[in-house]
């Protein structure tokens, strides 16, 4: 299946793009998606998305369409959806 990923804020800056497509196996999960993104991009984006133990950063919020999903949701993805990775930002 093909998943469109949208990056926001610092994630957009680190990836160098607003959105891109990833091809995943039909059984692919959000964890597989994050691993694919980390493999394709450099160390900086990988560090923003994954903690030292390899699990997704809890401060990056994934959305499928406009709905927040849990990182461990097993059936969140299907062909053609857009996943937005929301970077933590703050005030000032």
């Amino acid at each position: 299946m093909v998943i469109t990923v949208e990056y926001t804020a610092q994630l957009k800056r680190a990836s160098g793009k607003s959105r891109e497509d990833f091809e995943l196996a039909d059984s692919g999960t959000l964890i597989d998606l994050v691993n694919a993104i980390a493999d394709q991009h450099g160390e900086e984006l990988a560090r923003m998305l994954k903690s030292a133990d390899g699990t997704p950063q809890t401060t990056v919020i994934p959305f499928v369409g406009d709905d927040q999903v849990r990182w461990d949701a097993s059936d969140a993805l299907r062909d053609g959806v857009t996943v937005t990775l929301l970077s933590p930002i703050s005030g000032g």
């Binding site: 926001t8 804020a9 610092q10 957009k12 560090r47 923003m48 903690s51 950063q57 809890t58 401060t59 919020i61 929301l86 933590p88 930002i89 703050s90």
Partner: peptide, 26 residues
């Protein structure tokens, strides 16, 4: 870019629901 939400305690997510810990890269 910007984000905005309104927290009603006990009814909606709070800031710590959304960001359970200090973001490492902020």
């Amino acid at each position: 870019e910007a984000q905005i939400t309104t927290v009603i305690p006990g009814q909606t997510p709070c800031l710590a629901c959304l960001f359970p810990e200090q973001p490492p890269e902020w």
